[in-house]
Design a binder for these strands. Structure first.
Length: 281
DNA sequence: ATGGCAGAAGCATTCTGA
């Protein structure tokens, strides 16, 4: 079972590229971020023609998330719910459509577009940290149900310096600060693992390249799009790959798809045992 | 420090992203 995540930076601008990619890769589930369109204008039909159902949670111009799935999603929820741990006021997150979740084939699929945060001294940065704290609380609720959990999307955080082309230049700044990494760690710690790092321990693997300064041509990238799975699901993981090829398209998204392959029939090795110090690499 | 580049809204230019 193939599950993918892709920040497409506008579903309408990227539609043909997304359809081409789906035909080529044949994912079972594709989670999209930054669709940038209201629900009544989302192009559902091209996906339906390929046999996919579409669940959308969008807004005008900004943000927006969607779950494209061969198996119809059940228990679809839009936005946060049940975030009690930090006394979060969920109301403040209602305006920005950044999270959609659903049950598909027995897996709790959680698709997120984490706020960028702008700069460390900005209001947007506080919003980002609060949003991540709410996400941690949200996961507490999901975990209680003992499900298979797959949390994926654009996290706008490089988990470690291995995930930045030039850590000396960017460490401590936006997407690479200790505050953000701690907040992300608080979401995943003790319950989720970064699928990509099970198979690849080295630097040099990116999911995003800035549009500016020919960053893709110089391969100056970051790994900020992630697929996290819980312990129960990690036993079924076969692979995790970043498909960088769409970044070479004409008029590409600045992000590329990340994808895992799951074997839902067999139970494999439990990768979770040595994960406690994962972020200390 | 600022802007680079891109998309949306909407028609010149601003806002936002990362």
């Amino acid at each position: 079972m193939l599950i993918a995540t892709w920040n497409v930076n506008s579903i309408r601008s990227r539609l043909s590229q997304i359809i081409d990619w789906i035909i080529q890769v044949n994912p079972d589930i594709l989670c999209l971020q930054e669709t940038k369109v209201m629900d009544d204008s989302f192009p559902v039909e091209p996906f339906a023609k390929l046999g996919y159902s579409v669940e959308i949670y969008g807004q005008k111009s900004y943000n927006g998330v969607a779950i494209i799935s061969k198996i119809k999603a059940e228990n679809v929820k839009k936005g946060f719910y049940g975030c009690t741990k930090f006394n979060q006021n969920i109301e403040i997150f209602l305006d920005q459509k950044r999270l959609i979740s659903a049950d598909i084939n027995g897996i709790k699929i959680i698709n997120v577009y984490v706020p960028n945060g702008s700069s460390l001294n900005s209001d947007k940065f506080h919003y980002k940290i609060n949003w991540l704290n709410c996400l941690a609380s949200f996961l507490d609720e999901q975990e209680k149900k003992g499900e298979l959990i797959c949390l994926m999307g654009d996290f706008n955080i490089a988990p470690s310096n291995l995930d930045i082309y030039d850590p000396n230049k960017y460490e401590g700044g936006i997407m690479a600060s200790k505050i953000e990494r701690d907040a992300l760690n608080n979401v995943v710690k003790g319950r989720l693992i970064d699928s990509f790092r099970i198979f690849e321990k080295n630097t040099g693997h990116w999911s995003w390249w800035d549009y500016r300064n020919n960053a893709y041509e110089f391969n100056k990238g970051w790994r900020i799009d992630h697929i996290y799975i819980n312990k129960k699901l990690s036993s079924k993981l076969k692979s995790c790959v970043i498909d960088s090829s769409p970044r070479g398209n004409l008029r590409p998204s600045d992000h590329v798809p990340v994808m895992i392959d799951l074997n839902l029939n067999n139970i494999n090795v439990d990768f979770f045992e040595d994960d406690d110090n994962f972020f200390e690499i």
